[in-house]
Simulated scan of single mutants.
Amino acid sequence: MSLTTRAAVTIDPKSATRPTASKTKSTKSDKAVGGASHVVLVIWSLVVIMPMLWTLIGSFKTTKEIFASPFGLPADWNFDNYINAWVGNNFGGMFINTVVVVGVSLVLVMVLGAMCAYVLARFSVPGSRVIYYLMLAGLTFPVFLAIVPLFFILQGMGLLNTLPGLIITYVAFALPFTVFFLFSFFKSLPYEIQEAAYVDGASEWRTFFQVMLPMAKPGMAAVAIMNFLGLWNQFLLPISLNTDKSKYVLSQGMASYASSAGYALDFGEMFAAVVITIVPVLIVYIFFQRQLQGSVSQGTSK
């Protein structure tokens, strides 16, 4: 075997085409910016976490303990405040009302918003651009300007002070944002897949629900989480359009409880009620956090 043949045999073909990794050295300015960013993030995390932690600890205290030692641990860790808030102040009933209103509203607004965004993005419908711009105008419309007209409209329909009336109102105000958010997702989907579904004999409904809607799942997940947070924390609409105490939702129940108690407010029970209100939101966000991050990154990269 010649020397040239031996050299050819000993050469690893992978190493010949393997790109050399370039090492980038971080400068002092980069390190300074990175350190400052971490400090700001730590401070911001403390600003957000500390009040929540303080509220959680205070929910296990009595009012006397809260004023005597605001930042200390409770002498007795019990759930009396949660039981009194859930049963005695009817936060259990308000919790169920909130779940029903937000759950039904979320399903309706996601289905209707996805269908509307799909039609506006994929079909040349007469007046589609006008409808799209009207949806965008709905995002800029202040909610408080519609309270008086909504009051009389729901009163004329017999839906004032009812849960269905709140559901319709929630859907109406969440629909423009949903259409605006999903429009870009449906617009970016390849038309070849839609045409292939038509060639295979799929109808418009089957193409939408079985082909196009699953492809827009990341956008659906992101907008569903955002709508859930907005609807769960809604305050102005229920307090203006729902004055029946038996149909209160959590946001207006919290305000009613704090204002009616006056100076005799039991802060331990109030903190327990706050925890009851925010725990479902935290659970939903933590559960769908990865999906939300992936959805936003995918939507911006398209």
Rank of each mutant, 00 (worst) to 15 (best):
P74M: 08
V274Y: 02
G294R: 14
A224T: 12
V100Q: 09
V143L: 13
Q293D: 05
G103L: 09
G299M: 15
R18D: 02
G35E: 11
N84E: 12
V281L: 15
A8W: 02
F288N: 12
V179R: 07
M135H: 08
M220R: 12
F181C: 07
P70G: 05
S2V: 03
G34R: 13
T20D: 06
Y257P: 03
D80Q: 15
G58A: 13
L292E: 05
T243P: 00
V119C: 10
T63A: 07
S251H: 01
N233C: 08
V275M: 12
F180E: 11
I49M: 14
N233V: 01
Y82K: 08
N227L: 04
F181A: 10
F79A: 13
L160G: 00
L160N: 04
M110D: 05
G58C: 14
N227F: 02
T98E: 00
L182W: 10
L145W: 04
G201K: 09
V279H: 00
S260L: 08
F181I: 11
L241E: 10
G253P: 01
L163F: 13
W44K: 03
A117I: 09
L166E: 01
I193D: 10
A8P: 00
F60V: 06
A68E: 09
S22I: 14
T63E: 06
F287L: 15
I153A: 07
T162V: 05
V100S: 03
T10F: 05
T98P: 00
M94I: 00
S251L: 01
K23V: 15
S188M: 11
G294M: 04
A264C: 04
G158E: 07
T4Y: 09
F288H: 11
K61E: 03
I66G: 05
A222N: 05
P19L: 10
M115T: 07
S45T: 15
V284W: 02
L160M: 09
M212V: 14
Y285N: 06
I57H: 02
I276Y: 00
G113P: 11
A197W: 13
D266F: 02
G294F: 05
F267R: 13
I49T: 11
F95L: 12
M1T: 04
M115Y: 08
A258H: 10
